[in-house]
C-alpha cells in the first residue's frame, strides 16, 4: 500500500476499502434480519421463504386477533402510566442530585443507578417475589390489574429519565434562577417559569425514552405478568415459541414503526438540546 498506488492520505481511513466493507457488512448484519421480517409481513405465503406477492391479510388477521389487540392495548396503557410517573420521579431525582448537597448522597446516587446496572432477570424475579409476597390482589378490573407491571416499569424507567434530565441540567446557568428570585419570584415561580422550561427538552426526551423502555420490556414484564395481564412482547413471545407466523411479523412491524418514530424523535431532541 506504499508509494504511488495510494491515492488517499494517511489519515483517510474513511476511504479504505476494507474498513468500509466491514462497516457496511455490520449494517447488513444489524438490519437485514429486521428488513426481512418487515418484507415478509407483506408476503402472501405462510412459509417465509418465497415471495408470492403483496398482501395485507396478515395485518388484517393480526388486527382481528383479539388477544393480540388486548395485549397491545395493555402495553400502551402500561407505557402511558409508567411514562407519566417516571418523568415526574426522574425529574425530582435529577433536580435533587443537581441542586442539593445532603448526607447519604453517594449511596442514594448508587441506589438510583442500580436499576440500570443489575441484570434484568434479577429485577424480574425480585419483582415477582415481591408482588407474590405482599399478596398483590389479582383479578382487579382493567386497567387496575396492570398495576404490578406498571410499578415494575416505573422502577426501571425513572433512573433513565433522571440521567437524561440531569445531563441537561448540568449546563443550566443558575444565575438565571437567582435573577428570577432577586426580581421577586417565589421559589415555586422560579421553578415553574425558569427551571422547568429549561428542562423541557430533557423531559420530553426522557419521556420518549421511558415510553420505549416500557413498550419494549420483555424480561421484567414476563415475571410480573399474570394470565390476564399479557403485554405485547409477552404475547409475541408465546406466539414465537409456538411457531414463526406472518401474523407475528405484521404485529412486530407495527411495534417497530412506533419505536422507530419515538426513538428518532428522542435522539433528535437530545441532539438539539445538547447544542443550545
Amino acid at each position: 500500500m506504499k508509494g504511488a498506488r495510494r491515492s488517499y492520505g494517511p489519515l483517510d481511513y474513511g476511504r479504505r476499502l476494507w474498513l468500509r466493507i466491514t462497516l457496511w457488512l455490520s449494517f447488513v448484519f444489524l438490519y437485514a434480519p429486521i428488513a426481512i421480517l418487515v418484507v415478509y409481513s407483506f408476503n402472501d405465503s405462510r412459509r417465509n421463504i418465497v415471495w408470492r406477492g403483496f398482501t395485507l391479510k396478515y395485518y388484517e388477521r393480526a388486527w382481528n386477533n383479539d388477544s393480540l389487540i388486548q395485549a397491545f392495548a395493555n402495553s400502551l396503557t402500561i407505557a402511558f402510566f409508567s411514562t407519566l410517573f417516571s418523568v415526574l420521579l426522574g425529574m425530582m431525582t435529577a433536580v435533587l442530585l443537581w441542586r442539593f448537597r445532603f448526607p447519604a448522597k453517594a449511596p442514594f446516587e448508587g441506589a438510583v443507578s442500580l436499576p440500570i446496572i443489575i441484570p434484568e432477570i434479577c429485577m424480574g424475579v425480585a419483582m415477582m417475589a415481591f408482588f407474590a409476597r405482599i399478596g398483590w390482589p389479582a383479578g382487579l378490573p382493567w386497567p387496575l390489574n396492570l398495576g404490578a407491571i406498571t410499578i415494575a416499569h416505573i422502577s426501571f424507567s425513572f433512573p433513565f429519565v433522571a440521567m437524561v434530565v440531569r445531563a441537561r441540567l448540568a449546563r443550566f446557568n443558575r444565575e438565571l434562577e437567582e435573577a428570577a428570585r432577586d426580581l421577586g419570584a417565589s421559589e415555586w415561580q422560579a421553578f415553574r417559569d425558569v427551571l422547568l422550561p429549561y428542562m423541557k427538552p430533557g423531559l420530553i426526551a426522557g419521556a420518549l425514552l421511558a415510553f420505549t423502555l416500557s413498550l419494549d420490556d420483555f424480561v421484567i414484564t414476563f415475571f410480573t405478568a399474570g394470565p390476564e395481564t399479557v403485554t405485547f412482547p409477552v404475547k409475541v413471545y408465546s406466539m414465537v415459541r409456538f411457531s414463526v407466523t406472518p401474523e407475528v411479523n405484521a404485529a412486530s412491524t407495527v411495534l417497530l414503526l412506533i419505536t422507530l418514530v419515538l426513538t428518532t424523535t428522542a435522539i433528535l431532541l437530545q441532539n438539539r438540546s445538547g447544542r443550545d
Binding site: Y31, P33, I34, L37, F218, P233, N249, S252, T259, L260
Partner: peptide
Amino acid sequence: LPFWTNLLIRTYALIAI
C-alpha cells in the same frame, strides 16, 4: 437504532433467518 428496537422482535427476526 437497533439498540432501541424491541429485543424480542430482533431475536425473532434472527430465528426467521
